[in-house]
Amino acid sequence: MGAPGLAFDGILGAALLWTAWQAIHAAGLFRAVVSFMVFGLLMALAWVRLEAPDIALAEAAIGAGITGALLLSALGRLDWEAGRATDECLRGRDRAFWVPTGLLLLAGLGGAAWLLPAPGLGEPVAAELGRSGVENPVTAVLLNFRAWDTLLEIAILLLGVVALWSLGPTPWPSSPELVSPALPMLGRVLFPAFVLVSAYLLWRGSHAPGGAFPAGAVMGAGGVLMLMAGARPWLSGDVHGPWRWALALGMVAMLGVAFAVMTGGHGFFEYPVELAGRLILLLELAAGLSIALLLFALYLGGEPPADWETRRPA
């Protein structure tokens, strides 16, 4: 690593601490949210430094991108007066409690974590990688060794959409007032790029950092950008529309494959070795598509109307 690397890590760590602190204690919610988004972007750098490029991709697209968009759109909907009633943090209160507690935690947890031998599972994963159907170990863990986790994770995304939609209708207009003709242009120009990058990430996933989650996140972020640029969302809350199936696609496909392999005398989620690669690619396609739609649906913040046209302000 060397001295330059260490200096870089030091600066990065200090910046992370500063932005995290600002995200919670900065004056004004807008500053807090922007600090948090910067925190997310810097975290992506930290993941790269820790040799986790897969997470860096996901963090940049989801942690900073989608979460940031979600936070800003929630902020736009907040009534300022309602927010102000309980505005700033209770500064300086309970310092007698928090300073010693913080130091104690820092020493205790830091010490405990320092003592960890961290045996890790790198070797067993490497040993079984040949039978997993893919070459990228992270994809092998996500979609083969621990595929049940991934199924539940996509289920949670779908559940999040259901929960959010059950709370009420989507606010409209969902995009800020247009201040520039350049933004719709940007949306039009960039959307093909978003599709291309997603496809590229999906294809890369089998042998290098990438895969369904970053790909879906990039695609979903593209959709959010289109919405911000004033595009009409085509995702409708229509009970009979095909969109609900498209949203559920990833979860249904994973459940389908998990049960389908059982017909061949295998266990739940036990892919036949010769088919594993193709099955994983199939699942990645379904999951990536549905993750993109689900993240977009989360951004809508509520149940979309059955027909957008009727809601459109003249």
Binding site: E128, W148, G267, F268, E270
Partner: peptide, 13 residues
């Protein structure tokens, strides 16, 4: 006990 995906303990669920 049932090992999901046929992968045994440290690796699978």
């Amino acid at each position: 006990r049932h090992n999901l995906g046929g992968w045994t303990a440290p690796l699978g669920i």
